[in-house]
Computed example of a mutant assay.
Amino acid sequence: MLSIGDFAGLGRVSVRMLRHYDAIGLLLPAHVDPHSGYRFYTAEQLLRLNRILALKDLGFTLQQVQLMVEEKLDPAELRGMLRLRRAELTAQVERDNARLALVDARLRMIETEGHMNTADVVLKQVPALRVAELSATALGYDHPTSITENLTPLYPRLMELMEAAGVTMTGSPLAFYRPAPTGPEDETITVHAAFPIGDADVAGAGFDVTVLPPVEVAAAVHKGPMSEAFRTGGRIATWIEENGFRPVPPGYAREVYLHCPDGRLEEWLTEMQVPLAGTGNATGGN
């Protein structure tokens, strides 16, 4: 038999926790010395302890754990529950890491306040563009993960539909956004994934076809994940103001994905385009 200290060490729990489990009847010692009161456990009880800890890590209360352990939960069921919980925790870690990266990007932007470099912002004419597109609804600009989660799956689906219809992409993929049609109180946005298709015949292809109008834009290339696009957006906004332009009403900004290697978001290159109103005082570029 194992002393409570040895059992605690092997099970990676505290002696205090084992005493608590004993007190509530969740894990009783195999033997208690009647004279000293010392608790002793068997190696087999480590299996029960492991189940208790596994269920506790799933978020169940100790009372719920006790009921489940007493019902002798099937190992396959327990494995399934653990895998589900692992997937949930992994998703939570990814969301937390994304938020942390966003905070870091905000801090970097704050550090540039007062001396924002707009040298890479250019004025250019963008011709009319006929695109195949699919759309979805995201929670809003203050929910970047919602934009990503709704926009990203549209591209492979659109590509599948284009391949099935024999339609070829004629330029870089892009995204554009439209505000909610119900008015300013609704902060949701419609996200559009699009591929240029030229004058291809697309009758009955299963996707929408839109002709984006010709427009004059202030543009800059953003390097890195689009969750940090506000950094480049800030440079473009500063340039617009400094050069006497005004952006057109919301709903016409575009993102053109120039280089998007899988799994390397830090290497992404995206041209952000903000359509302009007014004449301004800047010299155009290409």
Rank of each mutant, 00 (worst) to 15 (best):
P173K: 12
L276P: 05
G234D: 09
E160Y: 00
L84I: 07
I197H: 05
N243Y: 12
M109R: 13
R231M: 12
D199G: 07
L123G: 03
T170K: 06
T232M: 04
V248I: 12
A138F: 10
V221T: 13
K72R: 09
T232Y: 06
G114A: 04
R83M: 08
E88D: 09
G25T: 12
P213A: 04
F230S: 10
L139E: 15
S14E: 05
H20R: 00
L134R: 08
A203K: 13
H20S: 02
L107I: 14
L269Y: 07
P196W: 06
T270A: 07
W268P: 15
R108C: 14
G59N: 10
T188F: 10
M169F: 07
G80L: 07
I110T: 09
L10P: 05
V167Q: 12
R95T: 05
P225E: 14
E267Q: 13
V191P: 09
Y155E: 06
V217C: 10
R83Y: 00
A277L: 12
V215C: 02
W268R: 02
A128R: 14
V32T: 10
P181D: 00
V69D: 05
E185T: 03
E111I: 03
M272P: 14
E94M: 11
Q92R: 11
V69M: 01
I110C: 12
W239S: 07
R231N: 11
S36A: 15
H35V: 13
N286V: 14
A253R: 04
R246W: 02
E70N: 01
I236Q: 06
V221P: 03
F230K: 01
E94Q: 14
G11T: 02
E242R: 14
D120E: 05
A175K: 04
R254W: 05
S146H: 03
V167I: 10
Q45I: 01
D142M: 03
S146T: 08
M109C: 10
M272K: 01
T270I: 00
G9D: 04
A23C: 02
Q125C: 03
V256T: 14
Y252L: 15
L161K: 12
L62F: 00
H143D: 15
V202Y: 09
R19G: 02
R178E: 15
I24C: 00
F195Q: 06
R99L: 11
P75A: 03
V217N: 00
E228A: 11
E266G: 10
G171W: 00
G263Y: 10
L151Y: 05
L265M: 14
E71W: 02
V122M: 03
P179F: 11
L100A: 11
L47W: 08
M116D: 06
F245S: 04
R12E: 05
G244V: 03
V32I: 08
V191H: 10
L47A: 04
M116V: 15
D199V: 02
S36M: 01
P261F: 01
H20K: 02
H31A: 14
G37V: 01
R254C: 00
L276R: 00
R106L: 13
H115G: 08
M109A: 04
D262G: 14
R130C: 03
E185F: 08
E241P: 11
A229F: 06
T42V: 10
I24S: 06
F40E: 05
L134E: 06
Q45Y: 04
I147Y: 01
Y21N: 01
S172K: 11
P127S: 04
P173H: 02
T270D: 05
G25W: 09
E216P: 04
P29M: 03
G166D: 11
